[in-house]
């Protein structure tokens, strides 16, 4: 409202403030967690929260920003999880130390993301020809097929790759609080930067009105596949972290319900709001844990909350609001200046 030139903070200063705050958050909280500030159980919950944040924020690209409704996000997560799991087992990451360990972890994360992104392109090109609900259904179909293939591929081809229904076991546990947090920060950063760029504006234009965007020269198919692939990439990274967190994988984990779970986080937080996705991923992961004392009732309470939020706040908790540190600081700066003027 009151964004006059004197009240805006220059860009380099903004970047500086944000970098300082984020590194404080990452290193401070890692030191706190590793120093025994919280129990092992809480650390585990924090890691799951981090993985869910990546999943929700990445789905938000396709749902909130692009305005499509993919129901197969768990499929991409599965591709990433199995790629990461098989890679980590193959290179025996648990026996490596130092730099080679770090390289293996980074390679596993990138490889999972890339393979999931390849699947994103393969599925995206045919799926994005369709619109609205049909897109939802076809991605649902692809997600289920990925699950069925993961279950049965070993039997058919005679590989020892996914170990079918009995599950991939003894994956090196590479996931720590620190690397989950770094991945969360990088995911949010990359997606934020893409969305603020020319490509991001093209994606938003497609959401607002596809035909209008097309007639203004936006290459709709290209940008749709791009957003879809971006979303798949980070789902794959989250899958790899999940594999390294759990140490064993089963195809049934990545069913239709997992996709729905992620979608619920996005919609509940508010579609198109990264802050909302983060917030609801935290809430929806922490809430069932906090309600563990009421084991029997927690899923009922969870679904009731979902229905009630949708009835009373259909745009999600945050709507399209997004958190911005600089905006808050600018308000603060503007406020003190005005206050100073009145005094003087």
């Amino acid at each position: 409202m009151n964004r006059t030139r004197e009240n805006t903070i220059p860009m380099p200063v903004r970047y500086l403030i944000n970098t300082v705050l984020i590194s404080l958050l990452v290193f401070g909280s890692t030191a706190f967690v590793n120093g025994g500030g919280v129990s092992g159980y809480i650390t585990k919950v924090l890691m799951v929260i981090g993985i869910n944040i990546i999943l929700a924020v990445s789905l938000n690209v396709a749902t909130g920003y692009l305005g499509q409704l993919p129901l197969g996000h768990a499929g991409f997560m599965a591709v990433g999880a199995y790629t990461g799991g098989i890679f980590l087992k193959a290179v025996n990451a648990d026996q490596a130390t130092g730099i080679s360990y770090a390289l293996m972890v980074i390679a596993a994360l990138l490889l999972s993301g890339l393979l999931a992104a390849v699947f994103g392109v393969i599925i995206g090109i045919p799926a994005l020809r369709l619109r609205g609900d049909y897109l939802a259904i076809i991605t649902l179909g692809f997600g289920e097929i990925i699950r069925v293939v993961l279950t049965n591929i070993d039997e058919v081809l005679g590989f020892k790759l996914t170990y079918g229904a009995s599950g991939l076991k003894r994956i090196p546990k590479i996931t720590s609080y620190f690397n989950v947090l770094v991945c969360v920060v990088l995911t949010c950063l990359v997606i934020h930067m893409v969305m603020k760029s020319r490509h991001g504006r093209a994606i938003l234009a497609i959401r607002e009105n596809e035909i209008a965007a097309e007639s203004c020269g936006v290459r709709t198919t290209y940008y749709k596949v791009m957003a879809f692939t971006l979303s798949a990439f980070f789902a794959g990274v989250a899958g790899c972290l999940y594999a390294g967190y759990l140490g064993s994988l089963q195809p049934t984990t990545f069913g239709f319900m997992k996709s729905i779970e992620i979608l619920v986080m996005v919609v509940l937080g508010g579609m198109g709001s990264m802050f909302g996705s983060v917030l609801s991923a935290i809430t929806l992961t922490a809430l069932p844990e906090a309600l563990r004392a009421f084991e029997d009732y927690r899923m009922v309470a969870y679904s009731l909350v979902l229905v009630l939020v949708m009835i009373f706040k259909p745009t999600g908790l945050m709507g399209q609001y997004d958190f911005s540190m600089s905006r808050i600081l600018e308000r603060f700066v503007g406020f003190t200046r005005r206050f100073g003027k009145k005094e003087g």
């Binding site: 749902t63 979902l306 009835i311 999600g316």
Partner: peptide, 24 residues
């Protein structure tokens, strides 16, 4: 109550009802 709100909200409500019935 959701007839005039975004269709995705309606979809999520349906999913919520489905969870509610199953878990109930």
């Amino acid at each position: 109550p959701l007839r005039s709100s975004p269709r995705l909200s309606l979809l999520i409500t349906a999913i919520g009802i489905s969870f509610l019935l199953e878990n109930g």
